[in-house]
Amino acid sequence: MATHLPVIKNVHGNTLDVLGEAIVAGRYPPGLAIPPEPMLCEELGISRTVVREAVKSLVAKGLLVTGPKLGTRVMPEEHWNWFDPDVVVWQSKIGLTREFLRDLQELRRVVEPAAVRLAAERATAQDIGEIEVAFAGMKAAIEQGGDYVTHDLRFHQGLLRACHNRMLVQMSKALGALLRTSFEISTSRPDGPASSLPLHRAVLDAVIARSPPRAERAILTLIDSAREDIEQVLASRRKLPSLSQPAPPLKARVPSITR
């Protein structure tokens, strides 16, 4: 079972989080300049070097732009790198919006079916073995309690790697935080993990059977089921997860779940 250790950030990491969250929350509106370095240094109790490094990181993530006579200004959110895990975490901390979750589900519907079709054609024995291990971890977490989300993430990232397309493999890394958002919301439903486990098995069995059409249908069923879970959680007004903390473990179920 995976063990989560607390992430201890340095001064740069903490400053990056403070400024990033402030931008995503709208404290510094798009098109306007963030406070000058001396003011940020005084407000945050940090050096100019730390501020400059944090600004460089935020520029790289698409949240800020700098230039002569321009200063350091906030970019509109369509310029932000939504594949960056930090950006996704900052959004989750201030609140996951319906628009954000809709975009996520649409992205999954575009990327995962195509990737799974390729996986059904190209997956090696090692690929399938790794996905089987992830599935077994999900099943054990449901039956015995424990970390379900980490295994769920490994299952889907394993499928993306199994397509053996270098760009999709890179995307599997970038999609990690986005996928975790969806999985945590689905898992927050009491029956969410147990009801989705057979859907995961159907995807894996189709890949093992080398049936791209069947694999595509199975992953679409799984994605649409996750969308329904998300809609129900949103309708219930239940508190949504914050990705800055480890996923909560499942409690053990009494009945055993068959394959």
Score class of each variant (00 low, 15 high):
Thr72Ile: 08
Pro76Glu: 04
Gly31Glu: 03
Val51Pro: 10
Arg27Lys: 13
Ala22Trp: 06
His12Arg: 14
Ser47Phe: 13
Arg102Pro: 00
Asp103Gln: 13
Arg109Cys: 05
Ala22Val: 05
Pro38His: 05
Asn14Gly: 10
Arg52Lys: 11
Leu96Asn: 04
Leu63Lys: 01
Ala54Phe: 11
Leu96Thr: 00
Pro35Arg: 08
Gly62Val: 00
Pro76Val: 13
Trp82Leu: 08
Arg108Trp: 11
Gly26Cys: 08
Asp103Ala: 13
Leu32Phe: 14
Lys69Glu: 00
His12Ile: 10
Thr66Met: 04
Val55Met: 04
Ala25Asp: 11
Leu63Cys: 08
Thr15His: 06
Val88Met: 05
Val50Ile: 15
Val111Lys: 01
Thr72Pro: 01
Glu53Pro: 06
Val65Ser: 14
Ser57Cys: 12
Gly26Pro: 06
Glu21Met: 10
Gly95Cys: 02
Arg27Asp: 14
Tyr28Glu: 07
Ala60Phe: 11
Pro30Met: 03
Leu96Tyr: 03
Val89Cys: 09
Asp86Lys: 01
Pro38Ser: 09
Glu43Pro: 01
Leu101Met: 04
Val111Gly: 09
Glu106Pro: 05
Glu37Ala: 11
Thr66Asn: 06
Val89Met: 12
Ala25Gly: 11
Leu101Trp: 03
His12Tyr: 14
Arg52Cys: 03
Glu53Tyr: 13
Ala60Leu: 14
Glu53Trp: 13
Gln105Val: 14
Ser57Tyr: 09
Asp86Ile: 01
Tyr28Val: 03
Glu37Gly: 00
Gly13Phe: 10
Met39Leu: 15
Arg108Pro: 07
Arg73Met: 05
Val51Asn: 05
Pro85His: 08
Leu16Ala: 02
Trp82His: 09
Arg102Trp: 10
Asp17Lys: 12
Glu99Tyr: 00
Gly71Cys: 03
Gly45Gln: 00
Glu53His: 13
Pro29Gly: 04
Leu44Met: 12
Gly13Glu: 05
Pro36His: 08
Asp17Arg: 13
Leu107His: 07
Arg108Asn: 11
Val74Pro: 07
Lys61Asp: 02
Met39Tyr: 14
Pro38Trp: 11
Arg108Gly: 04
Gln105Leu: 15
Met75His: 02
Leu32Asp: 14
Lys69Ala: 07
Gly20Val: 01
